[in-house]
Simulated assay, not measured.
Amino acid sequence: MPEGHSVHRITRQFARNFVGRRVSLSSPQGRFAAGAAQLDGHVMTDARAVGKQMFLEFDNGLWLRVHLGMYGAWDFAGDIIMDATIASSNGRMGQTNQRGTDLSAGSDTRSDTAGDTGGGSLPGPVLDSAGENSLHSIGAPRRTRVRMAEQEREIDQLETFPPEPVGQVRVRLLTDTVSADLRGPTACEVLDPAQVDAVMNRLGPDPQLDDTPEAEQRFVDTVRKKPTRIGLLLMDQSVVSGIGNVYRAELLFRARINPHAPGKSLSEESLRALWRDWAHLLAIGVATGQMMTMDDLGADAYVLAMKNRADRHWVYKREGLPCRVCGTHITLEEMGARKLYYCPSCQA
């Protein structure tokens, strides 16, 4: 399932290529024909991401809400302008305390206790073994096709525009230069402003949108009230937005927190550090397109990790392998119907 960094990156592509333009909407597979007709021919006026959900506003006051879920993906095609502000030369991210995406550069956020994961000074484009790092696509418009989901990659150069829909396309958004095809979402619906507010208000804080002390306190207070295990709370989008299976495992290991610990058993200090580290890792994910969670990497090790997912994480998908810190074998079990990875020694 795409985690928060992916949805923010996708939303920024809509902000870069669609906001301010008149958009044609259709449903090639037919399942969203009525919804597409409500938005067809209107100007897109806003693109927002909150955690794993995205919201596209049109000038008739209606919104398109999309949740990619486990299998959803967007294919962008045409003269795509990649969002050059996703990663500036110093790797710093734009942020805002509003419920939207600010495309301006700003200061980065990071944990006071986490080590340097490369977010302070990102090197140039690095492609992993699957060719998945969209930094190589940032720059002048190119007629191409780009897949954006949990990972993202350039599929091919485009010969004709618009391309024929491929597969079961739920909805196509089309301008005179760019198309975006949505496949396999969990949710795709048209909402009015009151309905959008109701959905957003049910979601927990997202540090890409609001990294204020108030947002941090909301997270801390919510967790400390609950007897639920922290490994489940981090995946609860009403507690905190955007965290999925990878970030859950990595955040808890970096904090040396047992995933089975009840939320109310954790100290306020440890939860504040957890929030700050989530803000830090999320910013790196938005900047690079990769869930880079390793600490204290030199330039060569950073490039190696960006090229190979196996070198990018502390515990995720490392079951049975020795912990990078203590040598104890990493444990795999199920929690909340998802795979949970942790070190039984470091996180005892």
Rank of each mutant, 00 (worst) to 15 (best):
G106L: 07
D128N: 12
H67D: 11
T85Q: 05
L122S: 00
P125V: 10
D128G: 07
R99K: 12
Q53T: 15
G100L: 07
I80V: 14
L127C: 10
T109N: 07
D75Y: 04
G100P: 01
W74F: 15
D83H: 06
D79E: 13
G115L: 02
G120V: 14
T113V: 14
T96H: 02
S121Y: 05
G119S: 13
D112W: 08
A114H: 08
G106K: 05
T117V: 03
T96Y: 03
I81V: 09
L127M: 11
A114P: 01
M93E: 00
Y71E: 10
F58L: 08
A49Q: 08
A77K: 01
L62T: 01
S107V: 10
D116L: 11
A77T: 08
F58A: 02
L64N: 06
E57W: 02
I86Y: 02
G115Y: 00
I81L: 02
A130H: 15
A105D: 08
W74H: 03
G69L: 01
R99Q: 11
G124A: 14
M82K: 04
G72W: 01
V66P: 04
I80C: 05
G106T: 11
N60A: 10
M54E: 08
G94Y: 02
Q53G: 14
T96W: 04
T113E: 10
G120Q: 13
N90P: 00
N60H: 12
M93G: 00
T85H: 01
I86W: 02
S111P: 10
A49N: 09
T85D: 02
D75W: 00
A114I: 13
Y71I: 05
N97G: 07
G72E: 03
T113H: 05
I86V: 12
G115H: 03
G69E: 02
G106P: 06
A49S: 15
K52H: 10
V66W: 02
G78I: 09
A84Q: 12
R110K: 09
M82Q: 04
G91Q: 02
T117F: 00
A77C: 11
S104H: 12
P125K: 03
G131C: 12
G100R: 13
D128P: 06
A105W: 13
T109P: 03
F76P: 03
P123G: 13
T109H: 11
W63Q: 07
N90H: 06
S88E: 15
G106V: 09
S129P: 00
M93D: 00
G119V: 06
I80T: 03
S129L: 07
D79W: 04
A84N: 11
D108W: 05
M82S: 06
S111C: 11
G120T: 15
G124P: 13
V66T: 14
V50F: 00
G61H: 10
P125R: 00
T85G: 02
L64T: 10
P123S: 14
G120I: 14
P125W: 01
Y71V: 09
L62M: 12
S129A: 07
Q53W: 06
S121F: 09
G120L: 15
R110F: 08
A114N: 11
